[in-house]
């Protein structure tokens, strides 16, 4: 088995459909909040049972959690394998990654059962493999920043939103499971925060590079504003749990800014796209 496994070769059974980040961004169904009009463009897009598409939205998000957990499991597993013990990654770090494997495997189990509970079949939604891409760096510190801090940080936000959704929807089964997964994710983010500090203690340049990478991944995982403090984002920023996971106030503010920026960029792009579509329609009508 080689070191460093390419994302294109992630092994899946016949039910799965992989897509890229570009495919996802170009999916017209993800268009929202361009001008505040119409069902798909309303100002409040937070995932709550009050949304007319709440049922499908929650199922889609749960399927996204499911495939995300598979990739998180694969990423942690690869960190156990890809780096030589002590010369490239400390023994204790690899033990933490192995522990994360078990946790992520449980999360896959939980999300499969929750998806079934919610009436979703495996493969009903596409799988975006961008999560595993963040786990492909040849530097373990970059992986910790990209996966444990950015990706698992996003998981904290997602699980908090889903837990609240379960509470509001009167679904204690969903709320119960999300609460347990949230506890694990806080642990994983803290692991990442602790190791990042420890491994770059005497190498500020490496730390800065890792934090820059985290920022890029944070913005990417904001999915054009899917996660931010704004109610226009389906997923909120779970500030309290992020603090527990070792994020400083400054870091949380920075993520909030990046997410909001991503949301505004997305809104601008959608507005341009709709403008172009209107022009095309007018041209076709001979106006």
């Amino acid at each position: 088995m080689r070191k460093f496994f390419p994302v294109e070769e992630l092994a899946r059974d016949e039910r799965f459909n992989k897509i890229t980040m570009k495919d996802r961004q170009n999916d017209p169904r993800s268009v929202f909040a361009a001008d505040g009009e119409g069902d798909s463009k309303r100002a409040n897009f937070r995932l709550t049972p009050a949304r007319r598409d709440a049922s499908d939205g929650a199922r889609g998000l749960m399927h996204g959690i499911f495939v995300g957990e598979i990739q998180a499991l694969e990423g942690a597993g690869r960190t156990c394998w890809d780096f030589e013990t002590e010369t490239e990654a400390p023994f204790a770090l690899k033990l933490d990654m192995a522990r994360q494997c078990w946790d992520e495997a449980r999360h896959v189990e939980i999300s499969v059962k929750l998806s079934d509970w919610m009436g979703t079949e495996i493969g009903q939604y596409a799988e975006n493999t961008v999560l595993f891409e963040a786990a492909c760096s040849t530097d373990p510190v970059m992986r910790l920043a990209g996966v444990n801090r950015a990706l698992e940080g996003l998981a904290i936000d997602v699980f908090t939103t889903m837990k609240e959704f379960g509470d509001l929807a009167g679904d204690p089964y969903l709320e119960f499971c999300e609460d347990w997964m949230l506890a694990d994710e806080v642990t994983h983010v803290k692991m990442g925060s602790d190791w990042l500090r420890k491994m770059t203690e005497k190498d500020p340049e490496r730390r800065n590079k890792a934090l820059e990478f985290q920022s890029v991944v944070d913005k990417l995982f904001s999915y054009g504003g899917t996660r931010s403090d704004s109610s226009e984002s389906p997923i909120g920023l779970a500030r309290r749990f992020r603090e527990l996971a070792g994020f400083t106030d400054e870091e949380v503010e920075s993520i909030a800014d990046v997410s909001l920026q991503a949301l505004n960029e997305r809104k601008l792009a959608v507005a341009k796209m709709l403008g172009a579509a209107d022009s095309l329609t007018a041209a076709a009508a001979g106006e």
Binding site: E9, A11, E74, W81, T85
Partner: peptide, 17 residues
């Protein structure tokens, strides 16, 4: 280490977990 590395290479979901 080997078990962790293999997770990404097996398509069978139950085996992966």
């Amino acid at each position: 280490e080997a078990l962790g590395g293999w997770v990404a290479t097996v398509p069978e979901l139950d085996v992966k977990m």
